[in-house]
Design a binder for these strands. Structure first.
Lengths: 150, 150
DNA sequence: CAATTCCCTACTGCTTGACTAGGGAAATAG
DNA sequence: CTATTTCCCTAGTCAAGCAGTAGGGAATTG
């Protein structure tokens, strides 16, 4: 039942993107600094998030990463699933040799549990985290409060 | 989010004890055979279950293991917690260096999730598994249907 | 062109999970 | 009392996977 560092960092990074970047791409190094994570390691995680069309990137100066979807459309469940497989794979290893009756019984029960956990995890979004940040009075970095249009 | 083999085997073994042994102690080797698990490995798991007063043992011929509590008083949550720590320890690693604001936000959110998962896991008992076994028509081994009193 | 920033592949070290192994201690049958 | 049965305790091993590092390449911009 352990959550990997990758998933945790991914969630933190997505919260960071939603919270701190005001529409403009954020450099991986800035995120890494704010989130106390190795930039090199974050890169790997972002590669996965990109493949899943959660974030996108822009190269060169003034480049960086940004969310592709709205924060309320990204769930913790999706992120975790992405980085460590489905709940069912995790909890219900069916790699058992002889599938004895009692294996089938416990499998069935754990599948239901896995499904319930899935629902919980899919019920929390990045937007929820952002709101929580607001309530907790977390300072936004680089956020202007309003946008200058020239 | 992975469940360890130990937890899984423990659950299977407890189901086995509840289902197959008709009050008399069950040898570890019999359980291991029915559940397709190494007897030696099961021993280790049983040591933990014993320390938690879920099962007890009797040595010598006709000895074996038996449940100390009623099946409906043993939850999957307790067993898993026993063998791999609490949900919160698993999901909310607070071993983070500088506790940045966003760390606190995600921590708080994950703690709530962990609590919900705990409730789910504590809602399923060994008795539930036994009932499931009955519904699925799993054959009871060594169960007499009624008890001979001489 | 030079600087910036992302991108891809590979490597490494360390922890942990999943067992295996050896011998010891209690209970019971005969 | 002794042999057998069964649990009990400690330690060791082997492989997989996690967490992180490293090196160089490709696109973009000024």
């Amino acid at each position: 039942m352990k959550l990997s560092c990758k998933s945790l960092y991914a969630i933190r990074a997505l919260f960071d993107l939603a919270y701190h970047s005001g529409g403009t791409p954020a450099k991986i190094e800035d995120i890494a600094r704010r989130e106390c994570v190795s930039a090199r390691f974050l890169e790997q995680i972002f590669k996965d998030l990109k493949r899943a069309d959660i974030i996108a990137s822009k190269r060169g100066p003034k480049g960086g990463y940004f969310l592709v979807r709205r924060p309320e459309e990204i769930t913790l469940g999706e992120v975790i699933r992405l980085l460590e497989g489905t709940m069912e794979e995790s909890m219900c290893r069916d790699d058992v040799e002889g599938d004895s009756p009692s294996v089938r019984v416990t499998q069935a029960a754990l599948q239901e549990v896995a499904e319930q956990v899935r629902q919980i995890l899919d019920g929390v979004t990045i937007e929820d985290l952002a709101q929580r940040g607001e309530q907790m009075g977390v300072q936004r970095e680089g956020y202007k409060g309003f946008v200058y249009v020239i």
